[in-house]
Write a protein that binds this DNA or RNA. Structure first.
Lengths: 340, 340
DNA sequence: TCAATTTTATGAAACGATTCATTATAAATT
DNA sequence: AATTTATAATGAATCGTTTCATAAAATTGA
């Protein structure tokens, strides 16, 4: 029997209407009454129910964020940055982690729509069974809840979408390796990630073509977004009769596997092999050696996501889906060697 | 004008009461009606409002989790593990990140109580101005929302509390160093963290005493939970006339600073200095060399937190606060050298 | 002082679900 | 066939807010 607005009203000897005005700092309430009501609120430790309130005003001041893997440092950064944006606008962030699992993602989507979040930022777990996700997206449309897709796009052209400059980033990485004399460059990419995996391979290919380096299919591999996948693929690359002098790892999760594989074989970076990775992580600068990486501008990503979303929430924009691309930059550290 | 239960009822030609029964799979509704209602639900993409529902049944099936820093890998693990526990019980996790800021923590606490979470797991940002937090905690009591305090206790003996075995863990670490021949051991600890900082120092002292090694105040430092603090303190330790042969770093955030400082001075681990750290992190096994650490059993921590919390939510327990301690274990890798 | 005007306070309706007492229908028993 | 019993469906009350039309009180102007 928690205390309600009625209790406050009774206790302070005013009507609930007046109490509500005090709560919301809406005008037209006598100073002494306002004061009295506020005192009672303090005294009884009253907290207005966001449920009742949200139901009446049809806004909950909450934003949902669904990410595919919380153990991935990239998404941790996304969480932090999005939270900041959301918080600055006086909204509360509700987080969902699908752990790369479609069922769990659908589950999050349902829960969030049930909770009537005012908007959703979604980094989807995949497109394999897009149907399920699309169904949920329809529900959001029916409820008039705007969605911004980030990082992993769903080929929904009607939704606001922000992706990373995967092709260009991979091109930068590969080009940098080539410019440092590398000709045989291993590429480890991902298959789960909606389009990012293939886009990164495309960028890699583009650089090779540009420098007229024949591409060797044995050097290009796709795998799951896991440490193991990185480990296994690296092993394959290293045991090639003519192994690569450099490896471009497409994701930070696979990178861990690559590092493990190299360490086990006592292969030194960059002396024995050069390494470059997509995604910056907190510790890539602490690794030994510090890693040269392609870093996406996560901050811009999150800021933009919030802008697009709140534009819609605030009714500033309601036309067709906007599509934005976030650039990446090459951060040169010490994991790439210049070779003959 | 999203579709409501009334719309479903009208459309299906039944009463809202019946519709509600269908929604909740409660008995006593004819097969054909149930089917008809379900069809309409599908067709109209109906999602029952958790707000209205929660308001009526006084349960929201949500659990709040507040952590002090999401960039800290330890807490990322906590998030993941707690989420799993919560999810398994058919609840939704709502995450708050106080970023070690008391105001933001208070803010999270308010928001969560407003939302009427069914329970709260709190790793508090500090005790400096405990008053503010205590006020909020009173509100939770008034609302009958159970709280479990983890990692950072607030000297609230009436709340369920789970802490890490800080003293014993630090003792293990120090003892291990001593057994490897180290006599001058630097200690970097934290001051912000409620009691953990001093407890870890106590464990360090205990080990020194046990081996009758005189403690040198110059070797023991407390600092903020930041990279910079680790960096600065390490610098101080290294420029001592008689620098330590080993350093015990109390937190993984400070560790990054220590690593940076060592790298800058080209001091090799473990050849030139031995290192051991409290907190395991995903990458400590990938560092060069892999780091010997004191690892808290985070899994047990989170499982237990969920158990204590749901015990109360389910009304299985309602007596005085329970206090549990989670053990730590020494994970030997390669950052400690045996010296003469 | 009184009417006109402005300011402030009130209470009922609404939001969208659940619940429960009641009524309607179907099944079972004699 | 009539009565009892079991099963289904209904609709009004309720949860805790906000809002708004209305009423009461205070203020103003003559």
């Amino acid at each position: 029997m928690p205390v309600t607005i009625k209790d406050i009203a009774n206790y302070a000897g005013v009507s609930v209407g007046t109490t509500s005005k005090v709560l919301n700092n809406r005008g037209n309430v006598r100073e002494d009454l306002r004061f009295r009501v506020q005192a009672v609120i303090e005294k009884l430790n009253y907290r207005p129910s966001a449920l009742a309130r949200g139901m009446k005003i049809k806004r909950t001041n909450t934003i949902g964020l669904i990410i595919p893997k919380i153990m991935n440092t990239f998404y941790v950064k996304v969480i932090e940055l999005v939270e900041k944006e959301v918080h600055d606008r006086n909204y509360t962030l509700i987080l969902g982690n699908s752990d790369e699992d479609l069922e769990r993602e659908v589950n999050c989507l349902r829960t969030f729509s049930d909770m009537r979040v005012d908007g959703l930022i979604l980094a989807s777990a995949g497109r394999t069974q897009e149907g399920r996700i699309q169904e949920e997206i329809s529900a959001y449309r029916a409820l008039d809840i705007p969605i911004v897709l980030i990082v992993r796009n769903l080929s929904n052209t009607d939704l606001d979408t922000i992706e990373l400059e995967n092709r260009e980033g991979a091109y930068q990485a590969t080009r940098y390796l080539i410019e440092n004399g590398h000709r045989r460059i291993g590429m480890i990419s991902s298959s789960i990630q909606t389009s990012a995996g293939t886009e990164r391979i495309e960028g890699y290919m583009k650089a090779l073509e540009e420098f007229q380096i024949p591409s060797d299919r044995e050097l290009v591999h796709m795998g799951g977004l896991t440490l193991d996948s990185g480990y296994i693929i690296t092993g394959k690359l290293l045991s090639l009769p003519n192994p690569p002098s450099a490896i471009f790892v497409g994701t930070n999760f696979q990178l861990l596997g690559t590092l493990r594989s190299l360490k086990e074989r006592d292969i030194k970076i960059p002396e024995d092999i050069s390494l470059i990775c997509f995604d910056d992580t907190e510790w890539s600068s602490f690794a030994d050696p510090p890693l040269t990486v392609i870093e996406p501008y996560s901050e811009d990503l999150c800021k933009l996501a919030a802008e697009l979303l709140f534009d819609r929430i605030d009714g500033m924009y309601s036309a067709e889906g906007r599509h934005r691309v976030i650039p990446t930059r090459l951060v040169v550290r010490k994991s790439v060697n210049r070779i003959a």
